[in-house]
Simulated scan of single mutants.
Amino acid sequence: MTVTLDRPVTAEPPTPDALGVVRRARRAPLRHHRRLVAGLVVVLVGAFAARVLLGDFTVTIPDFVRILGGEQIPGATYIVMESKLPRAVLAVLVGLAFGVGGAIFQTTLRNPLASPDIIGVSLGASAAAVSGIALAGWTGWSVSAAAILGALGVALAVRAVAGDHGGFRLVLAGIGLAAAMQSVIQYVFTRVDEWDVQLVLRWLTGSVNGVAWPAIGLLALALAVLLPATAWAARSLRATELGDDTAAGLGVGRARTDLLMLLGVLLVAVGVAAAGPVAFVAFLSGPIARALNHGRTTLPAAGLVGAVIVLAGDYAGAYAFADLNLPVGVVTGAFGAPFLLWLLARGPLTGQRGRRAA
């Protein structure tokens, strides 16, 4: 009896067409992200130009270039170099810090409500700053240092209370500490000297007006260190979004996540130290950038969106209402509060990046 063995079945190699489809599918999100970032850069440049050149006192582009070159144009040089340009530069830097920091919070904690505004980090910085002003008589760099330490202290306290649970427990702990910080601010405000009222109000609302060039330079230096460090730590952000257990299985330890959170806190802290707690910028930037990027997290786009929001809010606060100059924090707060209500009205949220509960 003869037994005939069938030839082993081998997998056919992929055809060139199939490989091309896979490559195109993998490259499409990257191409879209590059186009998105490039588009946001164009929008940011346009908003920056509008903030510097337009308004009650318009400046032509040739005159602006001459002013930057050191030429003295009566009236225009002072307005550009001491008012318009520093406000625009500070708005961009603060928006970048808040946008990237807020996106880190929301992505790492997998909750759209876990922004520095909601969980008390910004209020912690403000409480420390106004306490230093009103109770200790601090000014200048000491107030900024107090704000940074206040933000770090609240972040550590929230993390300690929430433990390893994260999610809504962390948000609830943050809301509780935010209420406590708000009580501290209200108490300190009753003790503040009348000469310091305007300075304290700046720390309560957030403003890019009246900040000197040395303070702007210090913020730029801090971001020059923090943003590259964030880009390096964010290489594992995709794995972190999947949860601690999954991230650990992929080789991303808890230390990398904690480092990314620390960098997010520092970004928000230096932004608050420079301009006060500009409301809802950190909360809005991440979801807007994610929506523009087809649901994918993108820290560069979040930073650019934050910069555009602060620039547009400062321009609207300065010129939208006749004879009324509103701090940028008032404008962003007016738009951020409805966004928060809309997000809550969408339905119950889980800890996985705000998806609806099943």
Score class of each variant (00 low, 15 high):
R235K: 05
G276E: 04
F280L: 02
A212F: 00
D245K: 01
G271R: 02
D245L: 08
V225S: 01
S285V: 09
E241M: 14
T257Q: 15
R256Y: 02
A289C: 11
G251M: 05
A234S: 15
W232G: 09
D245H: 06
A239F: 08
L227V: 07
A231W: 06
I216D: 05
L250K: 07
L267V: 14
P277R: 14
D244S: 12
L267G: 06
V268N: 10
M261C: 06
V265L: 07
P228Y: 01
A282T: 10
F280A: 09
L219Y: 02
L221P: 05
A269T: 03
L218S: 03
L218A: 13
F283G: 03
P287D: 12
R254I: 13
P287N: 11
V272D: 06
T257S: 14
A282M: 13
A247E: 15
P214F: 00
A231F: 05
A248Y: 06
A215K: 06
A247K: 14
L267W: 08
R256T: 14
A224V: 10
A224W: 06
F280I: 08
E241P: 08
L267E: 11
L262M: 15
V272Y: 07
T230K: 01
V265S: 01
V270D: 10
A279Q: 12
G264N: 12
G253Y: 11
L218M: 10
T246E: 15
A231N: 03
A247R: 10
G276V: 05
A212G: 02
T257K: 13
A239R: 10
G286Y: 02
